[in-house]
């Protein structure tokens, strides 16, 4: 990736692209195709959720009382805020303001860490009660023979989402290093743009997870 070190406007263009514009559009479409696979990846878990909720509607109402609406709501706001700072990081990269872009990326990571810390407290509280996925489930507070199934789905969905947040933290940290080194400019900021798309998708998935898991009545 040494091409990014050059200050020349078109130094970043690989030889198999016509121009910078075509390279940018190709990278972006490639990222969108990856996001399609991500939607269907989470989609399989949403199918499990829908099937089991259709089979056991009363279980989902009972079990959701064990989830903390306030913590889930705060995490929703935190992720929306991080999406805003990510979008701003792209905007400042487009405006050649590497310093502000760097700090917006930092703010995005800070919000992501807040999200993971809240998630950690939610998980450890449940572990303390004996709410584990699958056979390890020992909690007796929910009067339903299939209570462990709800929490298996809960841990799979929020766990996979949490892994995506951790990967996002890593990617954005890498962007901060590159930004600090002056790799990005109005001419070339593709990694910031497509990491932004990834980060917004992580936010988007949570927008559906929050009402479906925490807000069942």
């Amino acid at each position: 990736m040494s091409h990014t070190d050059s200050m020349s406007a078109n130094a970043h263009v690989q030889h198999h692209f016509v121009d910078s514009e075509q390279q940018f559009d190709s990278a972006k479409l490639g990222m969108w195709l990856f996001l399609v696979t991500e939607v269907l990846f989470f989609g399989g878990l949403f199918v499990a959720y829908i099937v089991y909720r259709a089979w056991n509607p009363e279980l989902f109402t009972l079990a959701a009382t064990q989830l903390d609406t306030v913590m889930g709501g705060i995490n929703t706001l935190v992720l929306i805020g991080s999406s805003l700072t990510m979008a701003l990081a792209i905007r400042y990269a487009q405006l050649n303001d590497a310093k502000k872009s760097f700090w917006m990326l930092g703010a995005t990571i800070a919000a992501a860490l807040v999200f993971m810390v809240i998630k950690y407290f939610e998980y450890t509280h449940k572990f303390h009660l004996g709410i584990f996925p699958g056979e390890a489930y020992t909690f007796t507070g929910i009067d339903h023979p299939k209570a462990h199934i709800f929490f298996s789905i809960y841990y799979m969905m929020t766990g996979l989402h949490g892994i995506h947040v951790l990967i996002g933290i890593g990617l954005i940290g890498w962007l901060m290093v590159k930004t600090k080194r002056g790799a990005f400019s109005a001419e070339y900021y593709t990694p910031v743009e497509i990491t932004g798309l990834y980060w917004h998708l992580v936010d988007l998935i949570w927008i559906f997870l929050f009402p479906l898991l925490y807000l069942i009545d």
Binding site: W32, L33, L35, V36, V39, L40, G43, V47
Partner: peptide, 14 residues
């Protein structure tokens, strides 16, 4: 179109 296709195939899967 790519995003909408993912939604279509998700609905199909459900």
């Amino acid at each position: 179109i790519a995003l909408m296709l993912s939604v279509v195939f998700f609905v199909l899967m459900v």
